[in-house]
Nucleic acid binder design. Structure first.
Length: 429
RNA sequence: GUGGGUGUAGCUCAGCUGGUUAGAGCGCCAGGUUGUGGCCCUGGAGGUCAUGGGUUCGAAACCCAUCACUCACCCCA
């Protein structure tokens, strides 16, 4: 069962096996399909980046960077990080390749099944290597951009058949309004400092906004009465937020406003959102994102408003499994070639090569097993037809073609098997 | 990172308060049909009882450690 010396996959990492492949493929195709209808172009960036990219963008004080980022020094002495998220690399690439200069059109990027790394304590739906799909829409401050981003994510879930998700929405305001709010929030938290949980006391000093995220029971009363950021939005922030809500209604997307939704990355401005699934237990976030109007400039690009989201592949698949049960997908083939004896096996291989060249799904037995065993395998593989080559068939230069569903059998000469099979399958489809 | 739970065949799991050669179902292989699948019958293979220590006359079972998974927290996808 275990390989020599018990070498196994690292904690929190997973092998994607053939049995899982159809689900992954289905999701990838759904994302590609939505991207095509929305007009987004695919981007893939390296898994490793300079560590300072994330420290600057995601924020040095965030959990993601301060305790979860895989960091190492490479042989040349450079500080490298395995990427913990995809927005910063995508922006880095967009800036680096001049995608944002010398043109006024928006840039629409998406990524699909891209691996991310965070040093977490693993749990169901929480891995050290997980995969995301997502988008970045660069160049528009308009709430339509926010709405398009959220709609993109929801479209993927709908296409997959997921129905049981919840969309939560909030505005974190623009920079100046947020400072005003913090100027009220911090004194308020200080006035209840003694009653707060230890963690929240720490956050009051480091990142007061995130106290609102606390689920500690002793914090709930204080959080409930805390000043709400939505009361401090500037006029522009407010109309942006309201327009977004109108647009989401127009797109037929239900959501709830959650003034306590604060996300763990520093770069967000105005819109933040999260999609959760009630089928996922405590790791219930399917997707999260928001607007980041200052990030592009921070990373050395031109001033450029932007929105995006990242969505977990593994979590989407878990939610789907809860919905439709574990789909057991066995390997399959259309035609199985049964051979008896070495000469027949050689002939079988020759014909299978021709069939493969003609794009016919087919396989043959490699063990030289009994006919019964080969028939059983053909049955397991769900073969529509079996082509039998034994001694007599070899002599006649014609194999026996059996239709599995009916049990009927007829002779088909070796030189006509490819065209015969092709004719059957074009008739079927 | 904190606190719980679990770890027996490829899979799902039984194995009583420690007591001989560790079981079942499914799957796999073979035979019943010397060249014909599914259903049925019969037989077979397959296990360092997660790993390493310890307690004991004796450990899958009790204790400790490690590893993995898992639940809640934390965090988030």
């Amino acid at each position: 069962m275990l390989p020599i010396e018990s070498v196994r996959a690292l904690r929190g990492t997973k092998d994607m096996l053939p049995a899982d492949a159809p689900k992954w493929r289905e999701l990838r195709h759904a994302v590609d399909g939505v991207a095509k209808t929305f007009g987004y172009g695919e981007i893939r960036t390296p898994v490793i980046e300079q560590a300072r990219l994330f420290k600057r963008s995601v924020g040095e004080e965030t959990d993601i960077v301060s305790k979860e980022m895989y960091e190492f020094t490479d042989n040349g002495g450079e500080a490298i990080a395995l990427r913990p998220e995809l927005t910063a690399p995508a922006i880095r690439a967009a800036v680096e390749h001049g995608m944002l200069t010398g043109q006024s059109d928006c840039v629409r990027l998406y990524y699909n099944s891209a691996p991310n790394f965070r040093y977490e304590k693993p749990q169901l739906g929480r891995l050290r290597q997980h995969h995301q799909f997502g988008t970045e829409l660069l160049g528009s401050p308009h709430p339509i951009a926010d709405a398009e981003t959220i709609t993109f994510a929801i479209s993927v879930y709908r296409r997959l058949g997921l129905r049981t998700f919840r969309v939560r929405l909030n505005s974190l305001a623009s920079a100046t309004a947020r400072i005003e709010w913090k100027n009220v929030l911090v004194p308020y938290l200080r006035s209840h400092f003694a009653e707060l949980s230890k963690e929240s006391q720490h956050r009051t000093d480091v990142n007061p906004m995130r106290v609102l995220d606390s689920k500690a029971p002793e914090d709930q009363e204080i959080i409930r009465n805390a000043p709400i950021i939505l009361d401090y939005l500037s006029a522009d922030d407010r109309s942006h937020f309201e327009e977004l809500q109108t647009l989401l209604h127009a797109a037929n997307i239900e959501f709830v406003i959650d003034p306590l939704l604060v996300r763990g990355l520093d770069y967000y401005t105005r819109t933040v959102f999260e999609v959760t699934s009630p089928d996922l237990g405590s790791q219930d976030a399917l997707c999260g994102g928001g607007r980041y109007d200052n990030l592009v400039e921070q990373l050395g690009g031109p001033p450029c408003p932007a929105v995006g989201f990242g969505a977990g592949v593994e979590r989407a698949l878990l939610a789907l499994e809860k919905l439709q049960g574990e789909g057991v997908s066995a390997p399959s083939t259309a035609l199985f070639v049964v051979t008896l004896g070495a000469a027949a096996q050689r002939k079988g291989f020759e014909l299978v090569s021709q069939l493969h060249a003609a794009s016919v799904e087919c396989m043959l037995d490699l063990h030289g097993r009994s006919m019964k065993a080969q028939m059983r395998e053909a049955n397991r593989l769900g073969a529509k037809f079996v082509y039998i080559i034994g001694e007599s068939e070899l002599a006649e230069q014609a194999g026996s073609l059996k239709t599995m569903a009916t049990g009927e059998q007829q002779k088909v000469t070796f030189d006509r098997i490819v065209t015969t099979i092709q004719a059957y399958f074009t008739k079927l489809s």
